[in-house]
């Protein structure tokens, strides 16, 4: 899901930086208003939490493992705007300090993983679990569906960004300058693996975490509803 440097052309990178700018400003304003002074470190802790859950190896049938992004979960737990800031910070740390995510693609990565993923996850969860009690099974199912759909939405968007590169950036003789595959290849490739494998990993992890929180610390789910 992380887009490295060199996959997207300058126009696409620029567009996503421009698209993210008002979202970051709005997120900062909303979070400053809603976050109590006492919760200031929560953003940093939330960002570190987003960073670390991306490193968990989740066992899947067949003896192998897969990674969960946890974007929908962060959206549900922190609320979509605070989630957006937390994931942005985690992605910047990854790109700048560990060279993992691509410096020129931070805008695009943040749009897919820090905006689409937590927002879609949060609102799908909220819609399905509407009026459900904290310990309702519907919340667990809602979290699973939110994790699955939000991840696939973000993956589809990433595939779309890859797929438009040969149309946007090519030489006079038609040679692709960045990601070499068009929409007919990039979109099914990105969606296929996420619909079949990673989406399920995300769904299971998101649902199980909500299930555990219902039992151990239901107050966190109350808190998430307020944001």
């Amino acid at each position: 899901m992380h887009i490295p440097d060199g996959y997207l052309g300058p126009t696409t990178c620029g567009i996503f930086y421009v698209a993210m700018l008002p979202l970051w400003v709005t997120a900062a304003k909303i979070v400053k208003k809603t976050l109590r002074a006492k919760q200031v470190p929560m953003l940093a802790i939330g960002a570190a939490f987003s960073f670390v859950i991306m490193m968990f190896n989740v066992p899947i049938p067949g003896g192998t493992t897969g990674h969960a992004v946890g974007g929908a979960l962060v959206g549900i737990l922190l609320g979509p705007w605070a989630g957006c800031i937390a994931i942005t910070v985690a992605l910047v740390v990854q790109a700048l300090l560990f060279g993992d995510g691509g410096i020129t693609a931070i805008g695009a990565n943040c749009f897919n993983m820090a905006f689409v993923l937590p927002f879609a996850g949060y609102y799908i969860y909220k819609a399905i679990s509407y009026n459900a009690s904290i310990d309702a099974k519907r919340r667990v199912i809602a979290a699973g569906i939110a994790g699955y759909l939000a991840l696939n939405l973000a993956a589809g968007l990433t595939g779309f960004e890859f797929g438009i590169q040969p149309f946007l950036h090519k030489t006079a003789s038609g040679q692709a300058l960045y990601c070499p595959y068009g929409l007919n290849v990039a979109l099914p490739a990105m969606l296929g693996e996420h619909l079949l494998v990673f989406g399920w990993v995300e769904a299971i992890v998101t649902a199980l975490v909500i299930k555990y929180l219902q039992k151990q610390s239901p107050e966190f789910l109350e808190e998430g509803r307020k944001n």
Partner: peptide
């Protein structure tokens, strides 16, 4: 079993969130 493994991961993430949340107050 992988199902048990997934439960362990989920428990780990929720426990990490639990610790994170309470760490917030101490840090502040």
């Amino acid at each position: 079993h992988y199902k048990k493994g997934q439960q362990i991961i989920a428990w780990n993430i929720s426990s990490l969130w639990h610790r994170s949340y309470y760490l917030n107050e101490a840090v502040y």
